[in-house]
């Protein structure tokens, strides 16, 4: 049977759906997800270009302390007369970057520990789980406070590292139990039967199965890390290098009497509102990530 190239083409070319197109379709399915994405995008944008929009030291205006919201100062001013909105926008970068690093480290450590413990079991599991239990039991904020005495975490990276080191335990537990149940499934036994190495199994068989879970956790951990970071600043544990949301809260509470005047409300609430909006955005968007990555939900 003679076939012209055109015929052959139409028979054998399978149109692969563009990954972005698929993702977009899932996202727009529910308006809540779109809202989540927009919120995240706003704050990421703030972090990326925020500091570029303002001079490195924000102007103070002693005549306009705790001014009410106006066109010039949409969120009012702080105890020095600095525009609150400007502080919010420039203050995003440190916080979000630090949170991202924190989530990254927590996920890296937690996943590795969980995989090794869940896969190899026996003594490795016992030892790692004892360590995990320790990190889970010791309350993280007191620990962070104590650690701050030997380590001055001034950069987002250092802050992220220390938060990651204190925050990986919960994920390790969850990854371990997932690895456990995956290990019991037939395909692992079969793979070992044909002589595949442990390393291969871990990276090629098990990890891809838990990857969706890890991605979701990365997002969730970011929101938890934001809260932890802000908390540390609020307590005054982290030295202030630049102004950011946490510093704002600390200032509002300790120095400026914002707690005692009604006009200080916006200064106090703005950073709080930002934290909540970022968290809210991630939570809404997480729904889309879940559907995209969870093979059981696809095509339902």
């Amino acid at each position: 049977m003679a076939t012209s190239p055109a015929n052959v083409q139409s028979f054998y070319v399978v149109k692969r759906p563009n990954a972005f197109a698929v993702a977009w379709k899932v996202i727009v399915k529910k308006p809540s997800r779109v809202i989540g994405l927009i919120l995240i995008a706003i704050f990421v944008l703030m972090a990326a270009i925020g500091p570029m929009l303002y001079p490195p030291v924000l102007p103070i205006d002693p005549l306009a302390i705790y001014a009410a919201p106006s066109f010039a100062h949409p969120l009012g001013t702080d105890f020095q007369g600095t525009d609150v909105l400007a502080e919010i926008i420039t203050g995003a970068r440190f916080v979000l970057l630090g949170a991202f690093f924190a989530a990254l480290f927590a996920v890296l450590i937690g996943t590795s520990v969980g995989l090794v413990a869940g896969y190899f079991r026996k003594w490795r599991d016992s030892v790692l789980m004892r360590i995990t239990d320790l990190f889970l039991t010791v309350p993280s904020f007191p620990l962070l406070i104590v650690l701050s005495t030997i380590w001055r975490f001034t950069s987002p990276l250092a802050l992220g590292l220390v938060l990651g080191i204190t925050g990986w335990a919960g994920l390790a537990r969850a990854v371990r139990s997932q690895t456990f149940s995956l290990r019991e499934r037939g395909f692992i036994e079969a793979a070992r039967g044909i002589g595949l190495s442990d390393w291969h199994l871990l990276t090629r068989e098990i990890f891809p199965n838990i990857a969706p879970y890890i991605v979701m956790n990365l997002l969730i951990a970011t929101t938890g890390a934001i809260y932890s970071e802000i908390g540390l600043f609020f307590l005054g544990i982290v030295p202030f290098s630049t102004n950011n949301w946490g510093v704002m809260l600390n200032m509002a509470f300790t120095q400026s009497g914002a707690m005692y005047t009604k006009s200080g409300l916006l200064y106090l609430l703005s950073p709080l509102a930002c934290i909540m909006l970022v968290t809210f955005g991630v939570v809404l968007f997480l729904d889309a990530v879940d559907e995209l990555l969870n093979p059981r939900l696809k095509g339902v």
Binding site: L136, T137, V138, P139, S140, F141, P142, I145, V146, S148, T149, G231, F234, L235, G236, I237, F253
Partner: peptide, 27 residues
């Protein structure tokens, strides 16, 4: 664990002479 850890904040905010406050001020 979470509640006890949170005492560092709440005692600091409400000025209670508890362990959390003690920890923060001792530093």
């Amino acid at each position: 664990g979470f509640m006890f850890g949170g005492s560092v904040f709440i005692e600091s905010i409400f000025d209670y002479p508890g362990l959390g406050n003690l920890l923060t001020t001792s530093i």
